[in-house]
């Protein structure tokens, strides 16, 4: 059992360890970055510790992801019940139409309404992250063969039982794929949050672009890429059957 566990989670653990090592040991690579950027005084981004930046990035993304999952799955369930069916066509259309909006534009439009800082980022990520989750939850629940539902009802299950024991388990892989898409997009969009006053792993990149310091840019880019790969590989292990 443990061996099975170890082989299953090997890839995410490796990416995660690389990420942690990157955060902790970036300072040791000063010689390398000095070679990349010989003209600058500082070659290691040191305004904020990399671990702190990683923590902030994870916090913003996970708060948005948890809220988006709760609201998205809850909302999709609500509009597939008899009471909320009226809203189903509109919600389905908005969820697919909304995904054509570029995340950058959504982030940019959130700022005039919500202001600068971390809270607008969370709200923008939450709103945008809702779309794939709602869309996939709807697809998952609507995709269930009606005869399965019929059979469950025939066995005397109540609507609540059908939802919990039949519909949600059957739709789970599709819902999970939606959450994965949402989180992947959000990690990338959160990095842009550094341009609107929210400090995270995007900070070194933006600050490197502003100051013309390639070493900063590379440090931020490597860490964000490692973070995205770690999180994505975790999702890949949770849903082994599906590959988006």
């Amino acid at each position: 059992m443990t061996e099975h566990w170890a082989s299953r989670w090997r890839v995410p653990v490796i990416w995660g360890l690389l990420l942690l090592a990157g955060c902790l040991l970036m300072g040791q690579l000063e010689a390398l970055f000095r070679w990349v950027e010989p003209d600058s005084r500082d070659v290691i981004f040191s305004r904020v510790d990399f671990l702190v930046l990683l923590g902030r990035h994870l916090l913003v993304v996970s708060v948005a992801a948890v809220l988006a999952t709760l609201i998205g799955v809850g909302g999709a369930i609500a509009v597939t019940r008899p009471g909320g069916r009226d809203f189903l066509p509109l919600v389905a259309q908005v969820a697919s139409l909304g995904q054509t909006f570029p995340p950058v534009a959504v982030l940019a439009l959130a700022v005039p309404v919500l202001g600068f800082g971390t809270l607008p980022i969370v709200v923008a990520l939450l709103l945008y992250g809702l779309l794939p989750i709602v869309r996939n939850t709807l697809a998952g629940i609507e995709g269930i063969d009606p005869s399965v539902r019929e059979a469950a009802r025939g066995m005397g299950m109540t609507s609540g039982q059908i939802l919990r024991q039949v519909e949600l388990p059957l739709a789970a892989p599709v819902i999970l794929a939606g959450i994965r898409t949402s989180v992947t997009i959000n990690i990338a969009t959160a990095a842009l949050g550094a341009t609107v006053g929210s400090s995270n792993l995007g900070d070194p990149i933006i600050s490197g672009i502003v100051n013309g310091n390639t070493a900063y840019i590379v440090q931020g880019a490597v860490l964000i890429a490692l973070l995205a790969l770690t999180v994505d590989s975790v999702f890949a292990r949770l849903a082994p059957a599906r590959r988006a």
């Binding site: 990349v36 992947t184 990690i187 990338a188 990095a191 842009l192 995007g202 990149i205 490197g208 390639t214 840019i217 590379v218 931020g220 880019a221 490597v222 964000i224 890429a225 995205a228 790969l229 994505d232 590959r243 988006a244």
Partner: peptide, 21 residues
């Protein structure tokens, strides 16, 4: 290709910047 798609855009732009420069 899946691997590339996972990497955030800002990071990929940044990573290409070094080698091209």
């Amino acid at each position: 290709l899946n691997f590339l798609q996972t990497i955030p855009s800002l990071a990929l732009f940044g990573l290409l910047l070094g080698p091209l420069a």
